[in-house]
Design a protein around this nucleic acid. Sequence first.
DNA 1: CTGCCATACTAAAACGTTTCCGGAAAGCGC
DNA 2: GCGCTTTCCGGAAACGTTTTAGTATGGCAG
Lengths: 345, 345
Amino acid sequence: MRGIRQLAKHLDISIGTVSRALNGRPDVNEETRKRVLAAAEELGYVANQSGRSLRQGTTNVIGLMIESSKETVENSDNFFLGVTGGLQSVLSRHKLDLLMLPCPNDEDPYEYLKRMVARRIVDAMIISATQRVDKRIDLLVKAKIPFVALGRSTSGGNHTWIDLDFEGVAACAVDRLVSKGHRRIAVAAPSNDINLGYIFVDAYRQSLERHGIAYDPSLVIRVKSSEQGGYQAGHEMLRLDRKPTAIILIYELMAIGLYRRLNEAGIVPGRDLAVIGFREEPRGKFLQPSLTCFRMSLRDLGVELAETLLATMPAYAEHYPKGARNTIWPLELAPGESDAFSLKA
Amino acid sequence: MRGIRQLAKHLDISIGTVSRALNGRPDVNEETRKRVLAAAEELGYVANQSGRSLRQGTTNVIGLMIESSKETVENSDNFFLGVTGGLQSVLSRHKLDLLMLPCPNDEDPYEYLKRMVARRIVDAMIISATQRVDKRIDLLVKAKIPFVALGRSTSGGNHTWIDLDFEGVAACAVDRLVSKGHRRIAVAAPSNDINLGYIFVDAYRQSLERHGIAYDPSLVIRVKSSEQGGYQAGHEMLRLDRKPTAIILIYELMAIGLYRRLNEAGIVPGRDLAVIGFREEPRGKFLQPSLTCFRMSLRDLGVELAETLLATMPAYAEHYPKGARNTIWPLELAPGESDAFSLKA
DNA sequence: CTGCCATACTAAAACGTTTCCGGAAAGCGC
DNA sequence: GCGCTTTCCGGAAACGTTTTAGTATGGCAG
């Protein structure tokens, strides 16, 4: 006999009253509640989560699914840890705990999520790295698990998502380069099926056409989202017949490899070629010359994610009247020296 | 009525038998088991974790506590994601799931852990970033929760830990520098209370003395474990009356700031000053000149952590006969150009 | 005094699972 | 036919909690 029962016996009170006192129910004498809380503190009682979950059908846990594939490990750096800070700050206000669920890299993310959902270990989910077609979304919709996807997807009807403002970034980067006289602008896009690649390239294309520049598919270089990918992108770019005068990198990490390849070819970024990176990493700062890129607050993104998620959960929605809206997350231009190269006098 | 009861009714069999069939108990007819498994697959039945945990007193979940403080976010980069891969590969063999528990940065890690332990949400824990004196360890020992600490600590008697081979790294770095004629070797150590700082500096001191070089406290520069800290370290170093000819950095990230400060002073690493970094980050590669540092496999470390943890858990110990040993994790020297500066002819 | 309501509590059911205990049926040696 | 073991299964208790329904008490209006 342990747990609440022991506490009740110690107070010579029924367990029902103890439970109600601890959970802030109204029908309990205020003095009794004081005694119960004091005794709980003294004996170090904390409700067993399994018992409570079983009874309530709720776990007070929010899952954040991340993929720990080799590629993710090498690229995402502190992204999730950063977002986590913002998530926590909101969730903890509601006594919700955050659970990071790293999908093993030898397991299908869909199967992993399915198992986690079936076990009823979380009340709601945040999924990341959404694919263009993502079965996980259909699964969550069908299982009626509240969730928010970090990244748009065409799956699952109108689910809730938050995504970075690829259109804005692409437009800003293209505008900036065109204003410096560039007309042959390459883009290094990820070669996997992640949705942002498609969205970004579409936006890039539209921005070009807005300036009356024809879209040239040979300027879209598909490589891995890594340092090696950046090197590869540089390599491919140098082999083109009509070389671009500017390049946009979707993952900033690519800049490292690109710089190396350019260095081998005696090309100096910012002097002979304009380079713009996408998401700023703190690590990118010390490239020479410094990289022009786009900046965002990971923490604020985490807050937005948490608030959007809570708005989709019936038990918490009342506190978030703005509702479960889809959000395009803006990024701010952080000018550096790498795009100083201008074709204008 | 849902769950196993429904499954039992569908099969026209008692729930006890269904449970035993699913859990691989011996006393169930092989043909019956087949039927049960088939039906479970068909109906998509997965045992409710709360019910099962409540009954068994076990959750099949291993917690990995990480801190999401601002400093950690900026420094740990992909460390945990990398380790996670190795952890998963071992844990999944035992049908154990990994749960990352990020401690909110406005909450005391001790209180956070205490709550998680009391809720009985994990069967065992891995804690990281251990302090020299770490109350969390006492807590886990007292609560009899199996755990492994990533990092030595003086708390909690003889608990199980794994730590990086600071002594080996310090000795190797000092030996290497001394062999090139250096005798004034600085070290940039973290200013917080994390244990590795003390251990590393101790080992550095002993290595110096082994070479008959007197330990000079002014050469131990305590700074933040960040890029800024590296800049600061460079700054402090340049203000010394008798300047060092070599410097060892405990966090590689410091190298970035250090390089910048050196650059401002017109000092070229590898030509005018020997620099050695500690733990290799993939990002460190593209410093110019390339950084001499120490390398390790994050994945292998994860495997070691998982195996050590399982050895401390009675239910799994039999598979890990080596037992719960303390491990000093070796790192391998990755030579670069930054320590080419030699005082010998 | 009766009826009624509000307050504060108790008792018991329920959540979904695992596991203990007992027992039926079948096989086998005598 | 009897006693024994083995194999397989059903019934029921137990895990710790929340919540529903019910009850005693006292105050108060009529």
